[in-house]
Write a protein that binds this DNA or RNA. Structure first.
Length: 437
RNA sequence: GUGGGUAUAGCUCAGCUGGUUAGAGCGCCAGAUUGUGGCUCUGGAGGCCGUCGGUUCAAAUCCGACUAUCCACCCCA
């Protein structure tokens, strides 16, 4: 027995950790709807589910994000040292763990390709805002072993297929080609000098790069395309586009992909300014946006990552994948006024009017459930008024009313709540009616 | 990490320039109908007015700090 008071002055109420949220039954239905729709579609496309640990060795994520793993990214990881003195990290994304699992199991050596999907919580230590939580859910797919653009096309098509199934109309798929490692390396140099040139020839009163972009020019020049400052946008539009600067092979890949998407009737727009924060992406990158959910409006993101498996110690394996931010997608559904199909109302409400009737009511409820008929029973005696009020609120079509009088006579009231008609039936008749409807 | 908004009943919110027992709608419970719902009417329960401090005869109200939350920037594997 604790002497510590649970509430009162000076006692801090318990609350969820910042950036983590509870999801209650009405909203959970949205999540289940998306998950179920996604699973069905993934299976249709030949993907199978993989479940990997939430906790991974920190090293996995340090290596997967590679050179661009600046302080910012590692600061956003939930990393801690376990009692065995090992550094663990709660997964900030799904791909690295899947790749690790595949390499570790040796599956990639056995078969030429793998199509996997996952659904699960991810953790990033960020400042929460709309559509950005510290624990969030990703639904993702990874397609390993095929470098043909048809694989890219299939992944993108699957995404639009899924959004269409959920009822979205006006989503925008933005697509870009950022080349392979070699062409991007060359392009980054071209960009740096182009930016430097713009700075050198800059006149008084003309648009100038913001401070941040001047830093970006050195660290990761492609990110200047992401800048929202008006001056930078003007300047960025004068820079050579990455998709125009890639090698011939990469350019052909992009052309072929566009052709396949066109043929499949998948709408997209080319977005030369679409770049990714990490540099394991190769060639194809894409993003699907939905308005009405605030600044964090990308609900799906993905691309090709032909170097990652090898970087993590596996056999050279081309791969393409995507992931969905589930919480954002739910926000987008709600903003678009799309809702999951409502659950069917429970048809029967069993009402015990006094203590002696509780046993029989319980028995009837269990009988119904044994026959897969859902019923509501309060597990306590209630007044006729309160019970019927609750019954009609529940949406039940029929109330079965049992009191001391009915018990004595071996009967039960069957009241149709829509017509208010009420008949008296024996328990045998009740049981027959319950299982027949 | 930076900036701004907000914090009053279970929910959504009102409470004007400080001034008696802090309000409404919805929801909940009950009664009108002693064993019959929805509609209506009546009543009831439910509040450290986010926390701490300051100004004042007097603070939900003004000021400060803190905490939480939301939005935006940043970032976005």
């Amino acid at each position: 027995m604790s002497e510590v008071p649970r509430e009162g002055p000076g006692i801090e109420p318990l609350q969820a950790i910042r950036g983590m949220k509870d999801i209650f039954p009405p909203e959970v239905r949205y999540y289940q709807w998306v998950e179920q729709t996604a699973r069905q579609l993934f299976e249709l496309y030949g993907y199978r589910e993989i479940r990997t640990p939430v906790l991974e060795p920190t090293e996995l994520f340090v290596r997967s994000v590679g050179d661009s793993s600046d302080i910012v990214v590692s600061k956003q990881m939930y990393t801690f040292v376990d009692p065995g003195e090992r550094s663990n990290t709660m997964r900030p994304e799904g791909t690295a763990g899947v790749v690790r699992a595949l390499i570790e199991s040796g599956l990639l050596k056995e078969t030429s390709q793998q199509k996997l999907y996952y659904i699960g919580p991810m953790f990033r230590y960020e400042k929460p805002q709309k559509g950005r939580l510290r624990q969030f859910t990703q639904i993702g797919i990874e397609f390993f072993g095929v470098d043909h653009p048809a694989a890219d096309a299939e992944v993108i098509t699957l995404c639009t297929h899924l959004l269409h199934k959920l009822g979205f109309k006006g989503v925008t798929t933005r697509l870009n080609n950022i080349g392979c490692r070699e062409c991007r390396k060359a392009y980054n140099e071209v960009l740096r000098s182009a930016i430097a040139e713009l700075v050198a020839n800059q006149d008084e009163g003309e648009p100038a790069w913001c401070d941040l972009c001047q830093q970006r020019a050195h660290v990761n020049p492609m990110r200047v395309f992401d800048c929202k400052v008006e001056d930078c946008r003007v300047l960025a539009s004068k820079l050579p586009k990455v998709s125009d600067s890639v090698c011939e092979t990469c350019a052909r890949h992009a052309e072929r992909l566009a052709g396949l998407l066109d043929a499949a009737g998948v709408a997209y727009e080319l977005a030369p300014d679409l770049v990714r924060g990490l540099d394991y992406y190769t060639r194809t990158v894409f993003e699907i946006e939905q308005g009405g959910i605030g600044a964090q409006n990308a609900v799906v993101g993905g691309g090709r990552y032909d170097n990652l498996v090898e970087d993590l110690g596996g056999p050279p394996t081309p791969a393409v994948g995507m992931s969905i931010g589930l919480e954002r997608l739910v926000l987008a559904l709600q903003a678009a006024e799309l809702a999951p199909p409502p659950p069917p109302d429970v048809e029967f409400y069993i009402l015990a009017l006094d203590e002696v009737a509780v046993g029989k009511a319980f028995e009837l409820a269990e009988f119904a459930r044994m026959h897969e008929v859902p019923v509501i029973f309060d597990c306590q005696a209630r007044s006729a008024r309160a019970g019927l009020r609750a019954a009609s609120k529940s949406g039940a079509r029929v109330a079965l009313i049992i009191g001391a009088d009915e018990i004595e006579r071996g009967v039960c009231q069957w009241k149709n709540l829509e017509t208010s008609e009420q008949v008296e039936l024996t328990f045998d008749e009740i049981e027959r009616n319950l299982t027949e409807t």
